[in-house]
């Protein structure tokens, strides 16, 4: 069987141009790959924590919350002076959240630079209060304020009644906890049911003199 050869007069030009451009692209990608180490934004351990937005209540007023302000990109592993963040997604009408609220108050007081018995870093607790799509879970800022006061919490509560933060973080239910390093990288998530937030703080955070 004799095949018919198809002749393309431009094949050399096209091939040579394609090779030049592909080489250029490859070199650029290699330079970027070797000089940068991008970290994905996400809610898994090792990823950079997504933004938390909304108005926050600190016991006095509602103010614009600045999540970025909690982080220091120059922090290095093992540095005890960096402040960690414990983020709690909760709903004021969720029974599990109500049950764990007392523990949260204790943890916020324990893992605090003002506690002389704690030789680890200061952990800033933050609660993002949502309204789950369950009958009887209607929430309001007044309810968030009352909840905070009832359980003696001294940390800020963010109004996430519209579920924006919850959706951004892909939270399936409440309560849900995240422990975030001082550089904004997630260190622990409560999907790991083998330990609670307190145990995670003790296991992961550095200690003075260690």
């Amino acid at each position: 069987m004799i095949g018919e050869l198809i002749e393309d007069d431009n094949a050399g030009t096209v091939g040579s141009a394609a090779l030049s451009v592909a080489s250029l692209f490859f070199i650029a990608i290699m330079i970027i790959a070797f000089t940068a180490n991008p970290i994905a934004i996400g809610t898994d351990v090792g990823e950079r924590a997504p933004e938390i937005e909304g108005k926050a209540y600190d016991g006095g007023t509602w103010y614009e919350f600045d999540f970025e302000g909690y982080f220091d990109s120059s922090w290095e592993q093992g540095n005890v002076s960096g402040q960690w963040v414990a983020l709690i997604f909760m709903d004021t009408d969720c029974p599990y959240c109500q049950q764990s609220a007392s523990n949260q108050a204790d943890w916020a007081n324990t893992y605090n630079s003002n506690n002389p018995n704690w030789n680890g870093p200061h952990v800033n607790f933050i609660a993002s209060a949502t309204e789950l799509n369950i009958q009887g879970h209607d929430s309001s800022r007044a309810e968030i304020q009352d909840f905070r006061a009832e359980y003696g919490h001294n940390f800020p509560y963010i109004d996430d009644i519209d579920q924006d933060n919850m959706k951004e973080w892909g939270i399936p239910g409440t309560p849900n906890y995240f422990l975030i390093q001082p550089d904004g990288i997630i260190a622990w998530v409560s999907d790991d049911a083998s330990e609670d937030l307190s145990q995670a703080i003790q296991r992961i955070t550095p200690r003075e003199g260690a």
Binding site: L24, A28, I32, A36, N37, S74
Partner: peptide
């Protein structure tokens, strides 16, 4: 145009590391 686009891609990668 290619070079400056590569530079912006590099910058976004560096910023994601936490730098500026």
């Amino acid at each position: 145009g290619f070079a400056v686009s590569a530079q912006t891609f590099w910058i976004s990668s560096k910023i994601s590391e936490g730098g500026n």
